[in-house]
Amino acid sequence: MVSIAKEDQEKIKAYFEENLKEPVKLVYFTQKASKLLVPGRECQFCEETRQILEEVASLSSKATLEVHDLVAESEVATSFGVEMIPATVMVGQNKGAIRYFGIPSGYEFSTLIEDIADLSTGNSNLSAKTKEELATLTEDVHIQVFVTPT
């Protein structure tokens, strides 16, 4: 069972208290727990991921979690362009789409926490030049960053 350690919870709570301004929604796609395993459909870390997100969302009144079933609510999944699980779409003061596929544990747990702060303030801390240049994009850009949980 994955769970955020008590002292880490306190730290995150304080960090959120200090850094969150506007609400942030975590839209999580998973599958319903079932005793019947459909080959290719079993989701090894869906339960653990949900637990992490629930705990994180509970640490600030400005963070909320919304849970959807990939198959039963396929129209919602399609609207977010989600085809695989576990998937977490983060919604706040962002202009583009910010998504996380897989369990946000280990090093990537801090990615999740810091992302939430960015999404809440809308402040990326990127340089003025970067922001200017990004405003000139004329085509869609899809970035995929592959990581491991260590």
Binding site: G96, R99, G102, L134, L137, V141, H142, I143, V145, F146
Partner: peptide
Amino acid sequence: RIRADVIEI
């Protein structure tokens, strides 16, 4: 214009 996906490989 940007869609950024982080994927636990």
